[in-house]
Design a protein around this nucleic acid. Structure first.
Lengths: 219, 219
DNA sequence: ACCTGAACACCGTTCAAGT
DNA sequence: ACCTGAACACCGTTCAAGT
């Protein structure tokens, strides 16, 4: 019964890292609390000092994935001309899809998982309540969707877009992106590398057409 | 040890019906093989004569949901003017979102569930392998996505749409619809009836704008 | 305060035995 | 051929006991 006390945040991220490796190895279905704690070198019960349930751990992994992607995009957007709203929109769309594809294995493994109806699942242990399918698209919860909503609202205010309802538009385009990325990830696993690269390029190209025509039809 | 032999298709749909009731009552997380077989009044082992796993049962429920929706839509589309391609597209989009919302409880419960990485899960017992997230959008697998692809391809060929790549467009718009329906379903559970009705109408209205501007920008 | 790990409880799946 | 249900195996979660 050795005891190794660690800074709580460090311990928490150890558990997340271990879980992420397992998810990449065997998928969400192969994730067990037993193996998470074994890889993180703590006792099984310690898991429940940092996460309310296995379900909440998955939520925290999803949050981390989306937050990392959003941070990378924000850095890239800062290098674009501030007044080029269409450029910012097209960049958001293309780099989001490509960003998901670049981490296809993790994205695919993470973003298909069970939802418990557990009514008592309020966020209370740290941050780590997942953005799930559905409110995933909610700009008030998901920073990635919020970045898109910002572009559409500011661009409309600036007269670059002619959108009747930029908030609704953000919901639509966020889901266009996310569902399409899911689809391309699965196709990539099914097809040869060559033919799926063609599909990816064709669909991304068409997604940019969609953005252009939808946001600025008078352009 | 009483034995009640039934026509296999009947038994199978009894199990599906029982599972659907449970999913509506307690969600996917609350679904157990034990309770499915209890409600269908068969022994636990009988379940595995009709489904390879609990996972495959969920896939079969999803298939049934999508097939029912598609059949209803097809009947409605037959009443539209055959040459009115934009009308058909707008109808597909609006009735799909509203169709999902009308069965929000079942749709929400069904379309968020785990994927096993089980490499041995080939469809072999009857039909009932699920269309999952990802290839869900594949028109060759999902009849609902196929209906949209048909409209876009035929409408483009007829000159009503000016789409560079109707197949890619179908993937994009299918995901716009599906993700947005997911989002609206979850919002509906979160908000009061009044405010969510407003949101639904605003988002649907904007989705029709998107279809109009995207498919027929010269119109 | 933080950590341990044995014990418990709950299913998914199998299979030898029934009709 | 179709069905049964006890038994097995596998985890998620808890909690009394350690430092």
């Amino acid at each position: 019964m050795r005891k190794r006390t660690e800074a709580p945040e460090r311990r928490r991220s150890d558990l997340l890292d271990a879980a992420q490796r397992i998810v990449l190895d065997k998928g969400v279905a192969g994730l067990t609390v037993d193996e998470v704690t074994a890889r993180a070198e703590v006792a099984k019960g310690t898991f429940y000092l940092y996460f309310r349930s296995k379900e909440q751990l998955l939520g925290a992994l999803q949050d981390r994935f989306v937050d990392d992607l959003t941070a990378r995009q924000r850095a890239e957007l800062d290098r674009l001309d501030a007044g080029d709203w269409m450029g910012r929109l097209l960049h958001w769309m293309e780099s989001s899809i490509r960003g998901y594809l670049a981490h296809a294995d993790l994205h695919d493994a993470l973003f298909h998982h069970p939802r418990s109806e557990d009514p008592a699942s309020q966020p209370s242990i740290g941050h780590g309540q997942a953005a799930r399918h559905g409110h995933e698209a909610d700009p008030t919860i998901n920073t990635h969707a919020a970045a898109l909503a910002d572009i559409l609202e500011a661009g409309t205010a600036a007269g670059a877009f002619t959108l009747a309802n930029p908030r609704a538009a953000a919901i639509l385009l966020y889901n266009t992106m996310h569902g399409t990325a899911d689809y391309l990830v699965e196709q990539a696993q099914r097809e040869t590398t060559d033919s799926s690269t063609n599909l990816v390029d064709a669909v991304i190209s068409e997604s940019l057409n969609l953005c252009r025509r939808y946001a600025e039809p008078t352009g």
